[in-house]
Design a protein around this nucleic acid. Structure first.
Lengths: 263, 263
DNA sequence: CGTAGCCTTGACCGCCCTCAAATTATGTGG
DNA sequence: CCACATAATTTGAGGGCGGTCAAGGCTACG
């Protein structure tokens, strides 16, 4: 269950009692199923709550004059989509689904209540924000300085690592329910060129993306081609193909005062 | 004085008493002068405090294999450079100066003290973070989907607007103390092509960048070419060339509860 | 007055875009 | 289960934006 992954993420910041975990679970009980290409939040709108993605893919995007779309982030299961929209008075981009998506609806009120009952939550949310910010910076590098092949390799490394972190990979494979056009809009490439690039990745025996499934043949090689350094994702387990999983080590130390000040 | 601009920014979130303003001023009293091309914070390092830029330009950047540099943000007077590095255990990018820079040093402790004395500070800092994040997203659009001309026009609109917001413009001109190569590293273009693009902007009578000075000949036109919509910057005064400056209007309304929860 | 860094200009080339069409999935109703 | 429609993927040909390499001119500053 994906909520377990979410709770696991929270546990990097706070020890949760069974009651607290139950509180998180019950707050996520109200779910909604959305069709593909559904606009969750339109540019300019404000929001009254947030959604936790339980299954499927969504994205942040901006439409450009000429009908082109730039995707600036993929939102995958376990991601909160837009906690911070409420701090500003109107979104500067849109959020929409790419595949069928199931979300847990968290009203603003229930989030407030939850943050009071679960002390580490606020910190976890802000921490996620920082990781997202770092990811966006990485995307600037990607579209700015890397070739189509390298760019695509990098994105696949990122996606596979993130999917692995929420336990949605099976051996060297995971489901990525998006089209080549959706990839193109994220990579700032034409769909045609994405297609050629995918074939090249396949020919190089690095990765295969087909029928909405990503298969990694050679992670090391893919990482090298893409210049991928997983540090910015701040995962517990930086490589999805490391020999030992969670070697009994404790989570990274964190300053205790941060809880109160957020600075 | 640039600290006034900083205080003015804070005043969007809290009414500051003269004593509180004095507290901010005195916290910023310890200054340091840095040479150009000085590495303020290296990738992987942690930080114990933050710096408020008083004069000059700095930037966030990442070095890529091959010696190329991607600048992901310009830091201008009035910007805090890296309040949130302390939340994570190692920077995923570097921060360095582009020109001679004067900074006010704010230790972690003095920031903590200041946040307690000045209630709106925490919120102001996080709000800046969100604007920075939005700006980075805009840069993804820029390097991804715009031509060299459009890209450069967009950056000039952004820079001029930001400089205007901290009162560092003089009519249609402002000082941008960086080289064409520094522009190239931000725009993901070669220095050669930046040069050609600057000449084109001049020929089109849109803007001139020369001798570290940016002159805007036709903001409207520049905005159109660049597809620039200032909304993401969340400035009080969206256009630097609007007829009326600060027409006595009150700052945008904000939720009061946000102070306590930050969500 | 000399040197170093920055800016400018020219020639050539390759990555990726565009347009267009064929082929293959996907899905729907009979 | 098949016929059909629609969307997604694949393939080909041609062209342009911007990169690279190289050399010359300018400016600033010691």
């Amino acid at each position: 269950m994906i909520i377990d992954a979410f709770i696991h993420r929270l546990e990097r910041f706070a020890v949760l009692s069974p009651e607290e975990k139950a509180a998180v679970r019950s707050a996520c009980s109200s779910t909604r199923s959305l069709p593909p290409r559904f606009e969750l939040l339109r540019q300019g709108e404000s929001t009254t709550g947030t959604n936790l993605i339980l299954s499927g893919f969504a994205c942040r995007y901006t439409m450009l004059p000429g009908g082109r779309r730039q995707i600036t982030a993929y939102l995958i299961p376990g991601d909160l989509c837009d906690v911070r929209a409420c701090m500003l008075d109107g979104m500067d981009h849109s959020i929409g689904t790419l595949s069928p998506v199931e979300v847990a609806q968290l009203s603003h009120d229930s989030m407030l209540e939850l943050t009071q009952r679960v002390p580490g939550l606020t910190r976890a949310v802000w921490w996620s924000t920082l990781v997202e910010e770092a990811t966006t910076r990485e995307w600037v590098l990607n579209v700015g300085h890397r070739t189509a092949l390298s760019r695509t390799a990098h994105l696949f490394c990122e996606l596979f690592s993130r999917m692995h972190a929420v336990d949605l990979t099976h051996q060297n494979m995971c489901e990525i329910p998006i089209t080549q056009s959706d990839l193109a809009d994220a990579l700032a490439l034409s769909p045609v060129h994405v297609n050629r690039t995918l074939m090249k990745l396949r020919a190089l025996k690095l990765a295969t993306f087909r029928h909405q499934h990503l298969t990694i043949h050679d992670f090391k090689g893919l990482q090298e081609v893409g210049g991928f350094d997983p540090a910015y994702l701040r995962l517990e387990d930086p490589s999805p193909f490391s020999e030992v999983r969670r070697p009994g080590a404790s989570p990274p130390p964190r300053p205790d005062h941060a809880e109160t000040t957020m600075l």
